[in-house]
Design a protein around this nucleic acid. Sequence first.
DNA 1: CATGAATGAGTCTTCATTCAT
DNA 2: AATGAATGAAGACTCATTCAT
Lengths: 214, 214, 214, 214
Amino acid sequence: MPTRSPSYKPRKMPIQARSAHTVEAVFHATVQVLLALGLERLTTTRVAERAGVSVGTLYQYFPNKEALLASVMRRHLVGVVEQVEAACEQTKGHSLDAMVSGVVDAFVHAKLDDANTSRALYGVAAALGGASLVEEMTQRARLALCDMLATAPGCRFDELSIVTYVWTAAMIGPVQGLLENKAPQAAVDTVREHLRHMVLGYLQSVVKTDDRMA
Amino acid sequence: MPTRSPSYKPRKMPIQARSAHTVEAVFHATVQVLLALGLERLTTTRVAERAGVSVGTLYQYFPNKEALLASVMRRHLVGVVEQVEAACEQTKGHSLDAMVSGVVDAFVHAKLDDANTSRALYGVAAALGGASLVEEMTQRARLALCDMLATAPGCRFDELSIVTYVWTAAMIGPVQGLLENKAPQAAVDTVREHLRHMVLGYLQSVVKTDDRMA
Amino acid sequence: MPTRSPSYKPRKMPIQARSAHTVEAVFHATVQVLLALGLERLTTTRVAERAGVSVGTLYQYFPNKEALLASVMRRHLVGVVEQVEAACEQTKGHSLDAMVSGVVDAFVHAKLDDANTSRALYGVAAALGGASLVEEMTQRARLALCDMLATAPGCRFDELSIVTYVWTAAMIGPVQGLLENKAPQAAVDTVREHLRHMVLGYLQSVVKTDDRMA
Amino acid sequence: MPTRSPSYKPRKMPIQARSAHTVEAVFHATVQVLLALGLERLTTTRVAERAGVSVGTLYQYFPNKEALLASVMRRHLVGVVEQVEAACEQTKGHSLDAMVSGVVDAFVHAKLDDANTSRALYGVAAALGGASLVEEMTQRARLALCDMLATAPGCRFDELSIVTYVWTAAMIGPVQGLLENKAPQAAVDTVREHLRHMVLGYLQSVVKTDDRMA
DNA sequence: CATGAATGAGTCTTCATTCAT
DNA sequence: AATGAATGAAGACTCATTCAT
């Protein structure tokens, strides 16, 4: 019987690569099943099949169904939030108008870019009891918005936390509807334009402008 | 206060009233179970128990679980939409500001007034595949908004359907969050105030004013 | 408070007439439901509905579902057996040929005359545990056949009970198939002709003829 | 006989054999339950229990209760039909008498050999709406009979399809009764003898003999 | 007697999860 | 690590039967 080789990380790359590939396949399969059959009929077996692995393997990577869904959700949300954060970072110090355009565009773009996943995940959040995941991501976004707004030249906001709350919460609905084709004429650009107007109009009506002298 | 009639036929309850009472109890129980256990663990048996009737009875009034949920949903949505429609009707011909205040207040009021149901039903819509119910009610609300906006003195809106779409879709998120205590400080009045500003700011930035004088 | 009138049979006729009418309606409805939905989906409620009465009323006339089915079954079988018995009676003393023709024709006629009921009841017998009903009716028919065969001039049968058993059992299948359109060409007359040949051929090959001398 | 290989991987049972074993157990259990409790009280759970597996396992092999019953049915019918087909094949070119004896004996033997299953399945066909299964198997048998009869020396049959129809349909009843002990004296051999006489008598009375000589 | 709402035990079927191979 | 057969608790829904009106 040969002694165990002392190398604790044998074939590290290939194995990790395989893992990564499997996880990727499972994520993709989850979205596919969600899209094709809905959350109601999403079963772990079905996902595994679609991913080309066995259920057992799926359970090697995710402790249970809920964790799987949460993972998919998290991945999507992180992607969206990161784009929003980037937009916030980039428009720091610019005009309110530029900020709003940047953020709204980033959000719409992030959602539509990954439209299938967005659509698939609609409804999953609610099923994930508490939805603290969404809460967490929303917080991150709001924090970024806060930081950005603080750099708006000549602007000051009372109740900043409410402002970011309303902004984020109000922005989601119209975009979600876009994904479901509930928006009239499916005019993505038009809706984005309107969203910009809405948010900008909102901010302007609650901002305290530093009076112009000095 | 009239004395009770001698009740010469002591039917415990008129047959029709009994039915109505049962349905009412089931509706109420559904919301209770939803609130206490969530959609995931909402069983028809559980609902029936909570309602103080047998499953069989429940199935005498609702063909299946989905129909039950849809009924509860519809009832709630109709209630909300009707209040919005009433607000629209009442502010016809008034200023944009009055319209926005009226509608926003009506919506917030309707939702918070029936807060438990609202909270309970969050997530149910998604589970009701297609959710054409929500769609239908949203249409009604948007139609009412159209009619109302058409009477705003000196105002004209291009893309009215988009305007009502964005308005309704944007208004829902912040209010829903309010119900879930996701809003900071839980300041209902403040959020309502902000919503008014947001919608008004939005409308003003997309309206074409008849600058007839000058 | 008037004393009970001593007449023990008040409104006898009308009531019995109503009863008879109700029973009739229920019988008819049972067959209809059986034909339309099959035994599997035959429910007492459904039968009552179709009969235009309430379930409660149905249960006033039949103690339970099984009894209802047994009643319908019995009625049908009695009808058929009686026709066979009559045919037996009428051909007593005639030739074997005449007997066979008489019985086969009577049986086929009885079944096809009440074809809907026959079709509907196929399968019910098996569900009526034991099917002692069928057994009972078959006995009656066989007894009649015995009596009749005993009068066939110049014929004697060993194992008469086996003969009647085989005769009855063999005759049923082909006729049942006729009802279900399983017979080729749906040629009722041809099948009947063949049945006659079959039974006659059978009897002739097992009969002991009294040698012709006087 | 080779010695068992050292079995270096003591799999309790090769995976395929396990499946086959499970299916076999379920089939057997179905018949047992049918015999002991009847179709009415046959539950998938009950069958699974009797088979020593869980319901879930049963459903891994049969999509639903109906399919299970149909499988058991088909298996039985195929077994019977194959024996009839074999008998037909073997008596090709022989005398009518030999043909009839061969087929009748084969049928009776097949049924009685698998008597439990036969008894159990009585009544199942009717519950399997449409019962196209029985129809299908009957067709196979009739086809074989056709082929066989075509080789009877000096015999020609008009309406061959009717002949095979009547033959098969008539043969079933008496044998089924035998299984249920409805035949008097339970004299299997006697009934078989009678069946032979019946069928032979039938065929002789409808055959057109080539009276080539004379 | 008629009615039909209520009952609840009993069925079929699904699916998350485990574990022997 | 991978596999996928096995598990069995749980849920949706039905329906024979009863009984208050």
